[in-house]
Amino acid sequence: MKKYFIVFTLSLLMSERLIGAEAGMPQLDPKYWASQAFWLILIFLTIYLLIAKIFIPKIKGNIDTREDKMRKDLEEAKTFREEAEKKLKLYEELIKKAKLESKKIISNSRQKLNEDIQSKKESVQKQIEQEILKAEKEIKKFKLDSIHKVGSISENIVSDLLIDIFGEDGNKSSIKATVSEVVKQRVTKI
């Protein structure tokens, strides 16, 4: 259909008599050609000048500022991210250091504590030993004392017995010797 029209109009254009106008195509009536071309040029020129001088720079400005803003924002975001990453690294390092330090502190204090415990144990042990020694000494002393006491008491008892039985006091030195011998035998047995 359109091809037909193209051929049709072309053939009409080529014929100089412009029969088209008579055949019913107002487009081929040259009466208003000059007017149409004139007004077209006038109006198109106006539009062109307005677009070229005002609108295109404005639109371009708008687009450019938007792109600028976007680029700037993106760059800013990038720097922020880098900074954040740096901070994260720093933070991780700090944590690592802190962990190491705390470990050190823990092990140190543990060692100290152990040493402390050890030394305290030792001192307590020493004290205990000393106490034991002291006690042993005391016991020995008591033993000796008691032996002596037992001796004198036994002598007294023996002399009292001799008085009760025989009615007279025996030889003091012989009693003492006998008693001490017996006590020695008994006590050493114990």
Binding site: Y32, A34, Q36
Partner: peptide
């Protein structure tokens, strides 16, 4: 002599 009238096309 040239018709430059304002038309419906214009």
């Amino acid at each position: 002599g040239v018709n430059l009238s304002f038309t419906n096309a214009s």
